[in-house]
Design a protein around this nucleic acid. Sequence first.
DNA 1: CTAGGGTTAG
Length: 651
Amino acid sequence: MAFKCIKPNHNNLSFNSIFHRCKSMAEFKQAHARLVVKGLYHPPPSLRPVISFSALHPSGDIDYALLLLLRTSVPPTVFPFNTVIRGLARSLRSDSLSNSVLVLARMAEIDLSPNNYTYTFLFQVCAKFFASNLGQQFHAMVIKRCFQVDVCVCNSIIQFYSVCGKLDNARKLFDESTQRDVVSWNSMINGYVRNGEILEALWVFEKMPERNEVSWNSLIGGLVRFGYLDEAHRLFDEMPKRNVVTWVVIISGYSQNGQPREALVLFREMQLLDLKPNCPILVSVLSACAQLGALDNGNWIHSYIRKNSIKMDSILSAALIDMYAKCGNINLAMQVFGSSQEKDISTYTASISGLAYNGYNEESLRLFEQMKSAGITPDHISYLAVLCACSHMGCVEKGFHYFNSMVDVHQIKPELDHYTCMVDLLGRAGLLEEAERFIHTMPIAPDNVIWGALLSACRTHGNVEMGERVGNFLIESDQDHDGRYVLLSNIYAVSSKGDHVEKIQRTMRRRRIKRVPGCSSIEVDGVVHEFVAGDRSHDKTDEIYLVWEEMVREIKKFGYAPETRGVVFDVEEEEKETVVSYHSEKLAISYGFISKEPGSVLRIVKNIRICSDCHSAIKLVSKVFKRKIVVRDRRRFHHFEGGFCSCKDYW
DNA sequence: CTAGGGTTAG
């Protein structure tokens, strides 16, 4: 023993310590380059830390790892080869698949047999790139060589098959496997969930000998994904021990499935249990606030983030910006934008579209230009925001300018959404023929949404001929969509074909199409109050109606005349004025007058678009009662002040 | 000295 110490391997020690001191890829490369340039012999084992760092560290360089592994004589042990395949499995680059095959081939060249780790990483790569055939070949290799797989390899094969949609193969392996643990069961649940077989997933869940949080979370996540939110909530209640992922799944589930109130309720439950929300939860809750237009709640989240010094990443700041913008408070949104540290494309996009639907069209376009100057390449979503701004401005020329630059400068292939935006742009501007021609010359097939945009433009500009044609086509091809019937009958109602309205109503009744009722909400002291037209369910109904009638008397002195033309549905003639008089946004505003502090801004959120009667009434209310009123409808904001609206009556 | 399953916006 003492003998060996006489000649220690100085080289090896010193080179190892050189590399071990390195903290970044650049330092590794510099150190390595110095050795190579000086022609100093560096023993292969010392390269191991370089390979590990290059392959696995977030700031590493997988190509460098591959280079060292394939072109130098690293010691022929399986470890560095496994490390590189592991790194390839982590990377998102499309050549990872072929590179992992290259590594495997090199192993065969130098007679290195893959071990369990090698196979685990290989199946990870195949799962990530949905390399169904290659993975199957690896599986065959495992079988043919009588390789003794351990439970991890077995599970990674199950996982591989299930993400590739080969559920039968996964199930066969699972059934035949002698080593099954909770991960195997969970992978099967996930496989079924991923492939839409929620009943199978449920069956597996019920048969499991033991479950952990992941089992519960996977099933709950599956139920959420397929819209079975009540079932998901039931399991959530039954769950013996929840973790933070459980909360993410259920809260984001509600938030993304159009049930933002439930998301907020669960978030409050978390607060009561003194549980710390993580970033994804905060993002989901902010999105719920954005959907509801619940500014008080959103403000509270913002101060919670500040108080607890939660790290703001770009997603969280985008969510905050989006929340403020969708609550109609563009100033706060832009404040968050201004103070966010790392502005990436999502931060910009949230601000660009926020400005656009709040009526700050020029500012929106300016920010888009600013983003490009900052060296951020616009993507298809930021272009969507810009086109939307042009459409709100009614600026056809600018819209086409951006549409063309999207294709020519940034090589982004327009998707249906972009085409819809262009049809909307042309249609709003009254260029109906051009809009229809545009649809016919699109390189992809138009969907019902695009025709819907055209139909809506026909209604705005009273084009009965085109409206009748498009509308009748739409109520046949998309029979369940209530809005199309409404638009078409509105078009008939103001034309000489008033008698056709009756026909449309009969068709709707026959097909049992229910209209989605118009619904408006207002937040008071953190509670969101909801109203539908003619609603009498609120505690303060009497007062609300009294106040609105009083306000109508006042604005009539300033020239308000109720319009009933838009009301053609489900009501008898004499009811029309009553219904339009108590549209949901009017009730919500009236409640705001009663319950909010005098002079405070009233913020209303409406689920469908505002009608022109409400629009002119609210303009006058804002003038006569000197009150700022912000109405968010399905498409955009209307900021009412002093008798004017930010949309300049173009909406 | 390495490994397998669940969550994240615009």
